[in-house]
Amino acid sequence: MKTRLCAVILSRGLDEMLRFCLKNFFESAEQLSGEIEAEAIVVDNASPRPYLGTSFSDRRVRLLRFDAPTGFAAACNRAVQKCEAEQLLFLNNDVFLDRSTLGQMLQHGCDADVGVTGSWLYFPDGRVQHRGVVFGNDDIGPYHLHRGQYLEPRRPLEAFQAVTGACMVVGRELFNRIGGFDESYAFGLEDIDFCLRVRQCGQRVICVDAGRPMHFESFTPGRVEMDVSSRRLFMERWRGKYTIDG
């Protein structure tokens, strides 16, 4: 029986970008058509002009509309309740997957001791956007390793304490077992909090070299301001409970 994979994509406006994101997701999924059955839930997070069912020609796309702006955690948790897939892919609307991305992520992500699988992501100019999240001393906290550098992967996968929720594969059973994303976070760092809780369950968090998926990063207006309160909450909860990298 094929494994069902559901992409949960939270999006506000940026219709064309979302369309392209979905196109890339399904193209990447088609490379595994013999093994997985792909679908997507688009969470319309209070777009000024709501998405329509007819906006996406693909019948595998379902829409979940929120009239009021909703946090990433709450919106994703609600979307997960609406799907039955065994594997979940949390994907930002400004991430364009490579054809080989899903294959690589699922190949490693299905290992018994792997809880969360992230992917190397690149800015459009080829610099690294994400290759794993590391933790600094004191108030530095979590940050993207080698962000903004020109770098090529040397290993197919590496273990980290956390990876970005912009492109993250998680098993549904594990997701539900640890209670999904923590909805106390306004917007930002709920993914890191999630990864740390996954590790507390004894599962690994890995980041794989999965082609050259692209991430434009923080395209949605007003997104950055919310990071401040989220970071404060994160540090209150986790300071002293994570390992300082390097």
Partner: peptide, 8 residues
């Protein structure tokens, strides 16, 4: 109504 109508 939307998904969050109940809360609203």
């Amino acid at each position: 109504l939307a998904e969050d109508a109940e809360e609203n």
